[in-house]
Design a protein around this nucleic acid. Structure first.
Lengths: 216, 216
DNA sequence: CCCCGCGATTTGTGATCACACATACGCCAT
DNA sequence: ATGGCGTATGTGTGATCACAAATCGCGGGG
């Protein structure tokens, strides 16, 4: 039971592998809100001991992706309506700024890529693929924001996504969407036209649309 | 060498004690940018083993307060001008929103407390007390933002402060301030008058003032 | 039938250890 | 004197262990 030491493996550090694995699962909404996790369970799943599992969990807790009860138990957080409203407001603030900074650098190739991703989103919706929908939606936004050349801001936006992850999945179940996101069209149109005020409005609308129903 | 087990101590968990200790030192600018840290050194300083030290460091790295080199060495980060500009923009976005949300709840008692803190800031400046100045300045902002009743936003703002901590200390040395922060007066005045646009402008100015010189 | 309490099990915490790697120091050959 | 190399030291990583506390389940009493 010495877990392959390091031998000739590549170099994806153990605790980082666990972190990334949990992170994407949370961000994509593959874990239900309130679901409890155990360090030994995580370690077993990723074939590591408790130590790297603990580090990964600690990091996710620091990012707000996991909730740490007073007794040290970890679970994915159940967000209150107030917190959801705050996080939506943060998304609006940060992502509008990111989109605005990306606008001058948005070439036609980027816009075409966004349209391709958007088509994929429509497919996921048609197939009722919640996780795929969330993943594609985040890819749409991240692709745009990468052009902003603002890594610190992007990291902060992703932190917010992470916190909303489990809830977004639950939200997806509530609203029975059959249509593709209409605000994405507006975003693409504003990018093409170089219309900054229109872009800001479209991003703000897209980011806050779904979360309004949840708070009602 | 069994480190006092738990005996009759209260219950401030070990790794959390280390985390808080390092966090405030970083946020207050008591550690120079680029300064290297070792897990064993931290453990010795707080009288714990490497395990809690590692967890605290991991958490601070996750928050951007510490930099982790490719070989695993940790140090406080040396920020590029681009990153400083981003962080200043984030401060402006988030803190303007926080101030705006705090405005309707800003009673006279709060305003008086802000003025008291501001007087303390003037003292620190007169005494050339860099750390004291930073701490008092952050207290001024936090006191105001607490009224916004937006814990997630406040946490995000504090994360940005944390990332700027070591740099703010260096910044303090560059600009030889002798006058108390003039924008704080404007903030207080806007709060008294219930002037939201004025408040937003004053906060934005206060937050971005010092960092403009640094980027030049 | 429900509620309380006690014990077994689960779970997080922190210390310690073995190991791999990086760095730094010092010694020897040129 | 200087440059290169091998060793010693320091550092992070991850596994394992001992311990305390929390949680769960079961049984008895009301």
């Amino acid at each position: 039971m010495k877990a392959a030491t390091k031998s000739s493996d590549a170099l994806p550090a153990a605790h980082d592998r666990v972190y990334r694995g949990l992170r994407t699962r949370i961000m994509h909404g593959e874990i239900a809100p309130g679901e409890p996790l155990t360090l030994r369970g995580i370690g077993k799943e990723f074939d590591v001991s408790m130590t790297p599992a603990r580090e990964a969990v600690r990091r996710l807790v620091a990012e707000g992706a996991l909730f740490l009860s007073s007794s040290g138990r970890v679970s994915t957080p159940e967000l209150s309506n107030e917190r959801i409203e705050e996080l939506a407001a943060l998304r609006a603030l940060i992502e509008v700024e990111l989109a605005s900074r990306a606008l001058p650098r948005a070439h036609i190739a980027l816009i075409e890529r966004l349209q391709t991703i958007d088509a994929g989103i429509a497919e996921r919706i048609a197939q009722r693929d919640a996780t795929g929908y969330i993943r594609a939606n985040l890819e749409f936004h991240r692709t745009l924001y990468l052009r902003a050349q603002a890594p610190a801001m992007l990291a902060m936006a992703e932190t917010v996504w992470l916190q909303l992850g489990p809830t977004m999945r639950a939200l997806y179940g509530k609203l029975r969407r059959t249509e593709p996101p209409r605000f994405h069209r507006l975003i693409v149109a504003a990018l093409k036209a170089g219309d900054e005020p229109g872009l800001r409005l479209a991003v703000r609308s897209d980011v806050t649309q779904g979360l309004r129903l949840l708070a009602s």
